[in-house]
Amino acid sequence: MDWLPGAASSYAADLDRIFYVILAITGLIFVGVQVALVYFIIKYRGRKGRQASYVEGSTKAEVIWTVIPAVIIVGIAVASQTVWSEIKDPNHFPTDALEVNVEARQFAWAFTYPGADGELGTDDDYIRYNQMHVPVNRPVVFNLTSVDVVHSFFVPAFRIKQDAVPGMNLRAWFEATEVGEYELACAELCGVAHGLMKGKIIVLSEDEFQSWAAEQS
């Protein structure tokens, strides 16, 4: 099964696993309900001389189909919570990460890198547009904001999506696990050219990244 796009970040596999578990559970229920529906349609189709059974309900059945979905739901919620906090909880963000500022605007992405001093907000910071270079196997924490409307930072291959909200500085992170180029899209309707507000994430090996960074400053 390869319905989700190729995964290229450290937590993608965890998210995909929950997706497929839910797919399996709901798939099973889906098939069960549809089979029952078709079976009842055929088995209990109206015929002359037959009469329906006068059944008003069954407390036992009600209890069964209240409790079973409840248990399944609790299971899914618990599993989801682990991955959710891994990806979104600032307390679980990796330390020792490359830190980048990301600013979204109609209709472009701006990435501010710390210069040689490794710190943002200093004179040697440099800005690159629509292309985000990152090292492989090193976490990248980014501070996301917007200058105009709500945008959303979405890299399908990394399974990361975070809205960029004007007036707010939101932190998110990813760790790319494979060298290559990945598409970055805006996922929140942001105006006339929303569909064209795309960028590239270019994942380089650590050495290549260092030499790229050296060239910039």
């Binding site: 989700l4 998210l15 929950i18 899914i76 990806i87 999506k161």
Partner: peptide, 16 residues
């Protein structure tokens, strides 16, 4: 299909 979205983790990917 609503259960996929209800899962906050899966929603990160399928939202929007």
């Amino acid at each position: 299909s609503g259960i996929f979205m209800a899962s906050n983790a899966v929603d990160i990917f399928i939202h929007d």
